[in-house]
Design a protein around this nucleic acid. Structure first.
Lengths: 133, 133
DNA sequence: TTTAAATAGGACTATGTTAGTCCAATAGAA
DNA sequence: TTCTATTGGACTAACATAGTCCTATTTAAA
């Protein structure tokens, strides 16, 4: 099963909402209420988008979030990486060394799977947030 | 995270092994031993490939499995469906009615996500087992 | 006709991931 | 000082995946 996570869906909905908003700043509460997204979960997601320099925020009363990149400058690939971490389609394709695959010696399909990985990656790099807003 | 399951990886390895074998029949044990795949798990996978009319089998001593389709006639998409069930990239895109998404009314991204779904699907339909053997 | 080798298949468990919750701290405007 | 908002750590619940165990059933060979 190959699936984009609920968190990424929520992120897309949030970014759509923010990019359509007339106000300078949009609060997590607003987004949560209008899109039926659990508030606490959404907060975490927005923070990750901030850390990835997709959003910026101001705290305190009248605070909120705003976009600091144009939607067409944000590949879906980056969004997914920011939220869920690695996007490798198979564990063994992960760069991190602590994810050593015990089949390394005998694996007969590593090369074609890598190729598939690249094609999926390209698809998700081509897609940007502007395709969703 | 978007990922093909270990089961699908095992299926690809098994199909590669079978398609390269000189013998008419290949046993689950042979495949399991030479590829380091857990025997019981592999058995289940081969049975599913049989139900999907990718493999056929004969039981009993000297029994085993054999391919009944050419690798280039088996889209990766079908393999994944046979083994893991639905391949929708988002829950809400599932056809089955018992998978009702509670965001249906408010979901703002259904249409672009559907489009992405189609593109991913096409990629996995284009790829066939012959790309892996 | 017995035995061994093989597929067939149900039920169960262990582990890991995802989604979601709870709580406390910090920042800033009114 | 109080209220509103982001920040962020820790935890829990639910679910999916991977793997195991056990018992038929089928068939060729001894």
């Amino acid at each position: 099963m190959i699936r984009i996570s609920k968190k990424v869906e929520y992120a897309l909905m949030a970014l759509k909402f923010i990019s359509h908003s007339e106000h300078k700043l949009v609060t997590a509460r607003e987004i949560s209420d209008t899109n039926n997204i659990p508030y606490d979960l959404l907060s975490k997601i927005l923070q990750k988008l901030k850390n990835e320099n997709i959003l910026a925020s101001t705290q305190g009363t009248n605070g909120g979030y705003f976009l600091i990149k144009r939607p067409d400058e944000i590949p879906l690939y980056n969004l997914m990486n920011a939220i869920d971490g690695d996007t490798a389609i198979a564990e063994c394709l992960n760069e991190s060394t602590d994810n050593y695959c015990c089949l390394t010696e005998t694996c007969s399909i590593k090369s074609p799977v890598s190729k598939l990985q690249k094609e999926v990656e390209e698809l998700f790099k081509r897609k940007t947030i502007s395709d969703f807003v």
